[in-house]
């Protein structure tokens, strides 16, 4: 499998007044096509900074970052925007959908900003397909405020994959969701991953990370541990277990 993301001794320092903060102190990381990686770490470990770098929202202070073989550090604002548009799909903790805009229009957004002219009909079709993939075909014309949290996150995932990116980047995708909905989102991720989409997910929840195939642990701006998950959890099996538990639970509640 070819390498999609290649980080070489990447550092990132922020100037905070007189002091400088070293968020990343030389991270080297290689992610191949088709992987499902969870990046774990406490807040302040540098995982969000790493995420922004991988997402081409930011550039490294030193070191190299190759995305699909292209050195991102040398690119200007517009080129970075094009890379974000074509090669990266973002999923955020707070969904970040445009309010008062239908699910379908939200998913159409990446095609709207594509540098290659995409016709309106093709744009619409792609958006519909993406919504179908996340199981929301019937909710295309709902607005975010008419959707549940899990549904909103699925719209966000559909938007992230609408332009068929090389990498799906998820920043705490289940942070605002309950455990059951989190498992549902993981189902979506795992099925997309089976279709060959590379997924990099930042989380601080260990049980969410166990759905991924590989876990990268960050601390103090460095990668401390990088291991393959021996037996990733199957989200479908987990959901089935949840359902069973729910069926028995009410009886437990009713009997004093």
């Amino acid at each position: 499998m070819n390498v999609v993301i290649q980080l070489e001794r990447v550092t990132r320092t922020y100037a905070l007044g007189a002091t400088t903060v070293q968020a990343l102190r030389g991270v080297s990381l290689q992610i191949r096509s088709g992987e499902f990686v969870a990046i774990l770490g406490a807040s302040g470990s540098g995982k969000s900074t790493l995420m922004n770098l991988i997402g081409c929202l930011d550039r490294p202070t030193a070191g190299h970052y190759f995305l699909d073989g292209v050195d991102v550090a040398k690119l200007d604002h517009d080129q970075l925007a094009d890379i974000r548009n074509e090669k990266i799909g973002f999923v955020f903790q707070s969904f970040n959908l445009l309010t008062r805009t239908s699910a379908l229009q939200n998913v159409e957004l990446p095609a709207l900003y594509s540098s290659s002219r995409i016709s309106a009909s093709l744009r619409r079709n792609r958006a519909r397909e993406a919504l179908e993939l996340v199981g929301l075909a019937g909710r295309a014309h709902h607005h975010p405020n008419q959707l549940s949290g899990g549904e909103q996150q699925r719209v966000a995932i559909a938007r992230a994959i609408a332009n068929q990116p090389s990498v799906l980047l998820a920043d705490e995708p289940t942070g605002n969701l309950d455990s059951r909905t989190s498992a549902e989102i993981m189902t979506v991720f795992q099925s997309l991953n089976q279709r060959g989409i590379t997924i990099v997910m930042v989380t601080h929840e260990l049980d969410i990370a166990r759905f991924a195939k590989r876990n990268v642990f960050m601390r103090d701006g460095l990668v401390r541990k990088d291991e393959l998950v021996a037996a990733p959890l199957d989200s479908r099996a987990e959901l089935a277990r949840w359902n069973q538990a729910e069926q028995t639970e009410p009886q437990l509640v009713l009997t004093p």
């Binding site: 604002h77 517009d78 925007a81 974000r84 970040n96 900003y113 332009n163």
Partner: peptide, 13 residues
């Protein structure tokens, strides 16, 4: 925030 979303998705300046 909307501007941030649009930029993340690939909007040019």
């Amino acid at each position: 925030r909307e501007i941030g979303i649009r930029m993340a998705i690939g909007a040019h300046r």
